[in-house]
Nucleic acid binder design. Sequence first.
DNA 1: TTAATTCAGACTAATTTAGTAGGATTTAGA
DNA 2: TCTAAATCCTACTAAATTAGTCTGAATTAA
Lengths: 126, 126
Amino acid sequence: MMNLAADFPTKKNIKEISQEEHISSKYLEKLMGILKKNQLVRSVQGQGGGYFLAKKPGQITAGEIVEILDGPIAPMKCSSAKCKMAEHCSASSVWSELEKEMKKFLYKQTLEKLIKNNQTKKYVRK
Amino acid sequence: MMNLAADFPTKKNIKEISQEEHISSKYLEKLMGILKKNQLVRSVQGQGGGYFLAKKPGQITAGEIVEILDGPIAPMKCSSAKCKMAEHCSASSVWSELEKEMKKFLYKQTLEKLIKNNQTKKYVRK
DNA sequence: TTAATTCAGACTAATTTAGTAGGATTTAGA
DNA sequence: TCTAAATCCTACTAAATTAGTCTGAATTAA
């Protein structure tokens, strides 16, 4: 029988990630489950198993991750949902404009870029 | 005795504003109290009293109002506060950059601009 | 068969938020 | 001086959200 777990060398298991990221492993399990359901990561079950990215880091953005884990990117609940007050709400245009800005920014931030930034950070500090 | 209430012709009382803005007068009272404490509005007490802006509409920004009524402008709690995780958190730079963008945008939106936009909105619709 | 792992979903506890309640204080005008 | 109309003050409540736990089932390599 083939060894599924050995086929994806970049995979990491919950234990490893939870230690690196200082998150409780139980909570991380939950989050990874959500990411998997939304096809941002894939996984191998069983002994030697773990998780790995489902796409290249350059093709995964902060925007996607946020919307999957936190729900809609929006400064206010009313900014994206069609708010029934919008007609006589003087603020609604501010919120919807701000929402656009936030999305624009977050969908520009790829994991690849983030990794690079973080490497620079470490380099500068040392 | 002079009539304080008559000195500020642009003032409006809670009842009027709450009807225009479709907010309960009790809740609005609370909000106006906060705005007053933070010197965005001033008020005249007693019969015939009400609220009025403490500065010109061009000098009041959405950013100020939001920070006064909602607290710090931030996409995450950790973005402005010095998060102890920041050192090994790969996301922290994303949040702090996004926070900057949000502030930049909101502090550009003056009430004067908002009023103009809203007039245009009405004009276009009719 | 066993140990290491993901998977699933119900549950909990803390915090935040929107909004209310009740009454005290201030002031214009009759 | 009295009354009504207004702001002011502050404690309370209820609902929603969020971060995180608990328990145990299913899967797989060795």
